[in-house]
Design a protein around this nucleic acid. Structure first.
Lengths: 132, 132
DNA sequence: GACAAATGATACTAATATGGTATCATTATA
DNA sequence: TATAATGATACCATATTAGTATCATTTGTC
């Protein structure tokens, strides 16, 4: 079970790289060279980040990407939400029957508690905090 | 992201049912009727649990399944391990390069901390505790 | 204006994990 | 010996994740 999938991971690394060179726009080519991420895949990821207004893009010659928000305002959970959907450790329980029997309820409580903890911890992780 | 997949969930419910009727062997047919789990799928799950020595099976007419260990010794994490593999929230980081750059290390620490918490909490959940 | 270098939009394919089915062999009991 | 059960095993379906490809559009430079 993965908490962070590959596209979230790539997004994270790209944003960190862009953040470390805030003076200039960073092109896909440069990121590919730096981070060894498949070009097409990376392009898709960056387009999504741009639509979600985490990055700004500049088209044409000399174009590329820039941060659209300060690093302390980009949370890891934002990226997880974008690429993996709402974090929800409970899934199978909530979906089906609401409380088929007792043990499920107890289990649900425990899992919910874990979920709250995970979310709380993840929310403390911003791009700024990762750059140190 | 699911913490518990369907086969783990089915295993959990089956074991709970079997535990609540410890006097007798429980057949697949009975479990199917009770829990509305697809028969073939359930059969596979129970066979796995038997191989892992969580259940004992009796073949032939009147056969079925019994617990092989006391409920307090069956941990949720055992089932997760069996059906979903070792819980490992870090995956993508450990696999590739060992510490490609600074932010990954910080991230790894944080994720590891979360992982330890999740494991610690999950380990407190036994079948006995779910039966209340 | 033509060309080149960049992103935008979008559709497609590949690989993997999860969820589920089917069938034949074997065992035990009535 | 028929029947009701599990054992072993191979297969199929679906969903998610990972990755590719292509054409359109924009923009800077000659």
């Amino acid at each position: 079970m993965k908490l962070i999938t590959r596209n979230t991971d790539y997004a994270l690394r790209s944003i960190c790289f862009i953040a470390r060179h805030e003076e200039r726009t960073i092109s896909v080519s440069e990121l590919v060279k730096e981070l060894k991420i498949p070009r097409s895949f990376l392009r898709k990821i960056l387009q999504i980040l741009t639509k979600k207004e985490i990055l700004k893009s500049a088209r044409g010659l000399g174009g590329g990407f820039l941060l659209a928000v300060p690093t302390r305002k980009i949370l890891l959970t934002d990226l997880i939400k974008i690429f993996q959907g709402q974090l929800n450790l409970n899934e199978c329980f909530f979906k089906k029957m609401p409380c088929p029997n007792m043990e499920k309820c107890i289990l649900r409580k425990k899992i919910s508690k874990i979920e709250r903890y995970v979310l709380r911890e993840l929310k403390t992780i911003t791009i700024a905090s990762l750059l140190g």
